[in-house]
């Protein structure tokens, strides 16, 4: 008998315990709760916070305006809380290990912005999370560096490295069509998972936003690209190790991609200068899809459906077997907020 059978049992118990602790510790709304609510009573709120002046006259994002934009997004998402600080305290508590899952496949041109991550880390620390309890991660350390992140493993500073540094769990976790080994960063250094993906077109799935970003947490993502990544994306996000930790998605749509994704192709990237924030990843992905379709229409491109790659995984993620959130536009409350030139916020609901 292989030795991992014993390990599997131990890990199972450990994960159950971890999940229970996470569920018990949070006094805010966890993702499963939010998703479940969206299926029963309330609508799922998705905030699109946009700042036309995010870059000023330069190609780079202004860090002060980014922080303001993040605050606006968080206040709007958690309204009626009064401040961004109160909103963050619904997500994290001091002493928790917080992992920020970024997306760095697209290099400097089309990855999660380090400026956004700096802003999130600043607010997390203000909410009482120690710097050393925050880890910024993706699959590969090299890709993180290529995207402009500074790799760090110092214990008392914000940590930033790829799964290649810690490796994957020895044991498989399974749900539906998925059988994978999870990143040890997720299983060992994370009580609360904050997903920080990029808004992108995807040649297989149609779009890649929140849910597909979890492909970066497993050892064998290449096995889950056939059939428009469906049902793999939904099944992967059902893994308890992911679902129980996931609290929030902050999608970096400052630079987005409407065609040719997921790799960076400058001709298909545009400065959308927005953050898209939600606790319902299905609603967020559905909203992201709509934004990409609008851009494609403006650029006189075929719809994703006409291109044979409508994101069918969304319906699977929302179905009764998965219940990861809602893909029904009638049950998504989209709130568009923005900062004008004078940083005066505006609000538009739909």
């Amino acid at each position: 008998m292989r030795h991992e059978t014993i390990t599997a049992r131990r890990n199972f118990l450990k994960n159950c315990l971890a999940s229970a602790v996470v569920a018990a510790a949070g006094d805010g709304i966890s993702l499963p709760e939010a998703a479940a609510q969206s299926l029963t009573l309330s609508k799922s709120r998705v905030v699109i916070a946009q700042d036309a002046q995010l870059r000023g006259l330069t190609p780079t994002v202004d860090s002060r305006r980014m922080l303001n934009l993040l605050d606006l997004a968080m206040e709007t998402l958690f309204r009626p809380e009064r401040s961004a600080g109160e909103a963050w305290r619904k997500i994290v508590r001091p002493g928790q290990l917080v992992a920020l899952k970024v997306n760095t496949l697209g290099g400097r041109g089309l990855s999660t912005s380090p400026v956004l991550i700096d802003a999130i880390c600043e607010r997390l620390q203000e909410a009482g999370v120690r710097a050393g309890d925050i880890v910024v991660w993706d699959r590969s350390t090299e890709e993180l560096e290529r995207a402009g992140f500074h790799v760090s493993t110092a214990h008392n500073a914000i940590q930033c490295f790829g799964t290649d540094q810690l490796g994957y769990e020895d044991d498989l976790v399974m749900y539906g069509s998925v059988g994978s080994r999870l990143s040890r960063i997720l299983t060992e250094q994370c009580d609360v998972l904050i997903n920080v993906p990029v808004l992108k077109d995807h040649d297989g799935a149609g779009v890649t936003v929140a849910l597909k970003n979890m492909y970066g947490a497993i050892h064998n993502p290449n096995k889950y690209h056939p059939d428009g990544c469906n049902p793999y994306i939904a099944d992967l996000n059902m893994l308890p190790e992911i679902r129980s930790r996931m609290r929030l998605t902050i999608c970096d749509a400052t630079t987005a991609c409407y065609e040719g994704g997921p790799a960076y192709k400058p001709q298909y990237a545009w400065h959308y200068n927005a953050l898209i924030v939600s606790q319902d990843p299905v609603a967020l992905d559905t909203t992201g899809w709509r934004i990409i379709e609008n851009k494609r229409a403006a650029m006189r491109l075929k719809t994703l459906e006409a291109d044979g790659r409508a994101p069918g995984y969304l319906a699977t993620a929302a179905d009764r077997q998965h219940r990861l959130g809602t893909d029904d536009p009638q049950r998504i409350e989209t709130v568009e907020v923005g900062l004008g030139a004078g940083e005066q916020p505006y609000v538009k609901r739909s």
Binding site: L105, G107, D203, N220, N222, K223, H225, P226, G260, G261, P262, A263, K265
Partner: peptide, 15 residues
Amino acid sequence: PRECTVGDKERGYCG
């Protein structure tokens, strides 16, 4: 026979 179409910086099914 999969004939993976692979974009820049991506891998095929085989990984």
